[in-house]
Amino acid sequence: ATTLKLAHAAPESDLQQTLSVFFKEQVEARSNGELKVNIFPHGQLGSDSQMIDGARSGIIDIAMSGLNNFTGMLPEAGAFTLPFMFPDRESAYKVLDGEVGQGVSASMEQFGLKGLGYPENGYRNVSNNRGPVTTPADLDGVRMRVNNSKALNDMFDLLGANPQQIPVAELYTALETGVVDAQDHPIGVVLSFKFYEVQDYLTLTQHAYAPLALVMNLDKFNGLSEDEQKIITEVAAEAVAMQRELSIEKEEEMIAELEAEGMKVNRDVDSAAFQEAVKPVWQNFIDENGDALVNAILEASK
């Protein structure tokens, strides 16, 4: 029997673990135990970049990580996480599962990875301690933690916030003591990292869609029998579909939970004003990476 190591960075309460458990159970059942899957959640096998490096070199077999963590190799894939790229989830699914997404999966192969599908972390939203964020001016002068995406740094810079680099592991403390007053993450992260304890306001800005990528070491995949490959790809597709469904279902539940924890949730966002304000971010991206993928996404999501 072949044992596969599946790694992700989310805690066991997260849907990434739900997906992993489903994947494990189904793969093991349908292969009659010929394939075994061991799950390593919570970054046990390393940070996102370490997991991706591990899946490429084959010391990890399957890894799940934010698509933005692949943009060092595939800069054009940053198009998926551009601010306000996907107005709704349906268009995101359509693009990611269609030709455009297949194209990205195909270019992963030159880096030793087999793309198995795109689960999601949902939309990123802004939380802070100052007040609801209705218009771009509400972010002016806020010290804000931003991840390593250039587009998001550019975006919050444009909106007048003061983007700061702080590792996620230190973010709770930084928010608690006030080193920064704001951050942006998908809802699930706000809940599992308990940011609601140190943040008063959550605004559903939905400013960027956050796809995950489920990838497998290419050699390992090619080394499996045809039947086993089929099991892996089929189960992966089912797992992704299930995770997305749960993600939508769970989002309202999680928002309610955050409200129960005392967060004031604001849904009144002037999206048009935000989209107008961050236009230069798209232009920057197109200047650096060309407009092919952006146009393809816009075309496909029509």
Partner: peptide
């Protein structure tokens, strides 16, 4: 049965690569 220089190099360097 997973002897690999990659495990050693990746874990060692990523272990050192820490902001805290």
């Amino acid at each position: 049965d997973m002897f690999s220089a990659n495990i050693l190099a990746q874990s060692l360097l990523n272990g050192v690569d820490s902001f805290p």
